[in-house]
Design a binder for these strands. Sequence first.
DNA 1: GGCTTAGGCTTTTTT
DNA 2: AGCCTAAGCC
Length: 786
Amino acid sequence: MSTATSQKAEAVLEGLSEAQRQAASYLDGPLIIVAGPGSGKTRVMSHRMAYILATGVPPWRTMGVTFTNKAAAELRERCNILASRFVPNAAETNVSTFHSFGARFLRIHHDAAGLSRDFTIYDRDDQERMLKLIISDLNADAKVGEVLSSIEKAKNNNQKPDMFASIDTGYRHELHAEIYGLYEAELQKSNGVDFDDLLLKPYRILVQDDHIRSEMQDRYQHIMVDEFQDTNALQFELIRVLGDTHRNICVVGDPDQSIYSWRNARPENMERLAEVLPGCKIFELSESYRSTKTIISAASGLIAHNPRMIERVLFTNNEQGEPVEIGVTEHPEHEAAVIMDLVDRRMRSAVSKNGVGNLDDVAVLYRTNAQSRALETECSRRGVQYRLIGGMRFYERREIKDALALLRIVVNPNDETSLRRIINVPPRGIGPATLRKIEEFSLLNGVTLLDAVLLASDPTESRGLGLGNAALRKVRAFSDFVRTLVLNSETLYPNDLLEYALKGSGYNDWVQKDEETRAERFQNLEELGMLTEQYSNPDDRIEPRQALSDLLEHTALFANVDTLDDGVGTGSDELNSNVDAVGAITLITLHQAKGLEFDTVFIAGVAEGLLPHAMALNVRTQDEYEAACGEERRLMYVGMTRAKQKLHIMWPLYTSSSFHRRPNTPSQFLKEIPEEQVKEIEYARVPGRTPPPPVAFSSSSGVAVDRDPVVPSRRRREREKFSEIGVDDLPEEIRFKAGQRVRHETFGTGVVVNSRPVDGDLRVTVAFSEAGVKIVMASMANLEKI
DNA sequence: GGCTTAGGCTTTTTT
DNA sequence: AGCCTAAGCC
């Protein structure tokens, strides 16, 4: 490096801590950056990318990979801001998500993948539709979700159907393998790919095609990957291959924040990279610039219960801060009310201190999307602005998918899934029987389903379809519409084409029919219309058809977190809020909250069965149980470390307020948080605890005033839970000992092999004769003694 | 043959 | 709330 160059490079590193600077400026081979929560991960990545450019590496020879479009945009922009002083074309770095990288790769090398350029990207809903059809054609007894996860697993391990079939035997496995094969054939026929294909097909091409591989390997001098703990086997291999020439692979992540193993992520990938790439350097960023000492200690105490390959200690020089509050409430609705009261109080105190309270600084985190309902209702009731992340994602809404399906059949005439989706939506008299005849014709004559439909417009040829007069008339009307739609696509830009499609198909009129839903559906279609405007500027000198393809690619690859900053701001429109604040409170799942931070964080519903979630713990072996529980614990850890100033953890005594309610037990994770960092507050009377704490109520929901809780000491309660309560102390109906024969509704009969009391409940391990070994909670499982 | 309606069932997390 | 099925109606 020349002196001038090295001065530029040094300037780019300004403002980094010593540890950050070392990680950002190490360019001598592979490195792993283990970055704890709030340690400046994004900062280090963007500075490092800028540093690479400042040393003279051309932007097009760098590559940055993230999981979300939002993270990609942030990395690109921050790097550009830092480097543009020295490098004029700093914005030309290749920063993208795994999936958009794959899509771009396949658009270029579509021939090698056996696709045409206009292939369709199928999302989960499309996949499910295809599989449903295949399963019902086979008359097979298979669950769509289970087949899908088999297929995903196979693809993530680079197994084609025959390979997948050979790795295991058993009825179910063979059936899944067969369906997988048919599914692949269907994709091929449809000129379509699924999300996994966006990685798998490029990987296979790279492995097989020496020319393409060496071209790419030579090109990418530096590769950086974000959130590496969430990569799967395929993504690991893809990165390894791409970086094999220059070996400048830099991965950033935190094994403690790995929360996607259900999506086949391999948290051990971080450590494994060091084995695969000899001489790999490991940097640790252990100082948190985000949270208070209290929050860091609390979170560290929790995560210490997980077995870890490398011990890590997170620390901070921030202030001590307030204790973590564990709040006990009556039921989820009460929990929501208490949370809103606490938010209200915090906003008011912010107003008195700095003159303004900002709801943007507050988030409520929860395990399942369904939990947002109680919170939404409470926000609406009080007129508090909120921002709901996730739930039903925009591009997954029915009317949006229908509208896009109309456009998709124009771009890709082989896209049967989209054609089936809208051939009789709105109802136009083309029912199952008519559709079957069209299908038969298409199979018999080797033409696409769409071509068979379009035949109906031809007076003579249409007889071949074998339809009655009435049915033919209806298909012909649809066919005529599709023909004009396709013709119009040559000249109309996406905005006008969409409008034509919605009008001409009768979709607009149909949407108006349902009084309940029309306002929302219409609004969503309007929003889609706005998006199409961005792809409809003739000045961009992009042909209408190309613009349409670009639009569809965008809708396929854009996820929901990406729109986080767009202020979805639902809630009531009037600002009659009794909260003195601006902005909007964020409601978000723990998974989606990763990477975000807020001054004040509430984690709601921290009860056994919800966090850890019962479904996650429904596994066969003890080892699997430990692994699943570990992942749920990491989820809790991610949630806790989102908080900068104040963390509230809430759990409701009952599962709901209705008469179906069942008692909850607090999450096992609560007692793993060191008690020095915790203050417990009872907003509801806890049965069995005496005396009931005197509670002072605020106006709306009964929030207790701040005071130290009058409850038995934590140590005493733990002693009660663990040493003094044995199986024999439990109520008869949930008392199961080893050897007891039981019957379960779905698992059938089995024998108890082990049982352990957990918080007034019993964790029972049962070996079922049909279903294998299951671990269940006695109060939930409804086991019958036999 | 196709459409509408009612009732039962289920809902972990998502690039 | 949305999907599926069954039943009754046009």
